[in-house]
Design a protein around this nucleic acid. Structure first.
Length: 325
DNA sequence: GAAGCGTGGCA
DNA sequence: TTGCCAAGCTT
């Protein structure tokens, strides 16, 4: 990093637009901020050093497996709810082989109420693959990580970056929002990740490997703590004066309506209720117990069929079910 | 590319 | 209260 002192205050940028698409438009990488790259890096990294949360999966003692478990659990679930389950999970299954030796249903049970229990099944399947095909060690390269069940582009980059300190573009919802505001000048990113976003993130990634790894987690943390979806704390933001959205006067979001996920009355809700019964029961469960959770028999049957199809529930005999063995 | 997939907290 | 959001992945 440059010898310049890391100060919270950012030099006041020139009076030209913060973002300038190149002459060729969308195919040209956006010019990142009205801020030299080294200054941007030291500003965000300095902020991170002073404000990062002490999360257990960020400690030096955290194994790659511990990092990977945290990434699975954090897919769409807030940190606060993940913390206790993560700790219990790693106490019980300190290595992939420990989990792989158990029935998948035990993973579903331990998952508790984190939501999206298919993640538990995929984490178990990933542990089986790691144990059987990778010598019991979490793979350290992006492509191999990507081949594991439940590991997509984000998770592969996150594990490679956080657990193995590699240099990868880590694009999650936090990072996308920070760049949407600071670089592009809009309140929210598009629904799906675009090539332009990836170019921007690539252009901003520090060249040094170790610095890049810290940068990735630092930008995520900024999005999680300051540049939040609702009620961002712009007054506390290290990028306040450089932020394109701020300089544009914080224009409200204008894109298509962000899809709200309805829940009440959906199959998802029924699946959740059915699985809650199965999780609480350590043996088999009779049909009548399941029938009690939802009045509509058609929807109930559809939800149960879906759970069976997903491998989250195992039919034992006619009218008897259990978590998968 | 859009839809489906849990759950809880907060404004 | 209701709607929105939370370190996405799979089909």
């Amino acid at each position: 990093m440059a010898a310049t002192t890391v100060t919270p205050a950012v030099p006041r940028p020139a009076a030209r637009p913060a973002t300038a698409a190149g002459p060729a438009g969308a195919d040209t990488p956006a010019v990142p901020l009205a801020l030299p790259l080294p200054v941007l890096h030291s500003t965000v990294l300095g902020w991170y050093e002073a404000n990062a949360r002490d999360l257990p999966w960020r400690t030096p003692e955290a194994t790659p497996w511990a990092v990977m478990v945290s990434e699975f659990m954090l897919q769409q679930t807030p940190v606060k709810r993940v913390l206790p389950v993560w700790a219990a999970w790693l106490e019980r299954w300190p290595t992939p082989a420990d989990l792989a030796a158990e029935a998948p249903g035990e993973a579903v049970r331990m998952w508790g109420r984190l939501g999206y229990p298919r993640r538990a099944l995929r984490l178990h399947a990933a542990a089986v693959a790691i144990t059987g095909e990778h010598g019991g060690e979490v793979p350290d390269d992006h492509a191999t990580l990507l081949s594991l069940p439940g590991v997509g582009e984000y998770t592969a980059a996150a594990v490679a970056s956080f657990a193995f300190r590699q240099r990868h573009v880590v694009l999650d919802t936090n990072v996308r929002r920070v760049f949407a505001r600071a670089v592009t000048g809009v309140e929210y990113p598009a629904q799906a990740t675009t090539a332009a976003e990836r170019r921007t993130a690539t252009a901003l990634l520090p060249a040094d490997t170790g610095t890049a790894a810290t940068w990735a987690v630092a930008v995520m943390e900024l999005g999680a703590l300051v540049c939040t979806a609702r009620g961002p704390e712009c007054g506390d933001c290290p990028l306040f004066t450089a932020c394109a959205w701020q300089r544009a006067g914080c224009p409200p979001y204008e894109g298509p309506a962000r899809r709200g996920q309805s829940y009440e009355g959906t199959d998802r809700q029924v699946r959740g209720k059915l699985l809650a019964v199965l999780r609480a029961e350590h043996g088999t469960v009779e049909q009548a117990r399941l029938d009690a959770v939802w009045p509509d028999p058609v929807q109930r049957a559809r939800a149960l069929d879906g759970l069976v199809a997903d491998g989250l529930v195992e039919p034992v005999e006619q009218g008897v079910y259990r978590l998968p063995q």
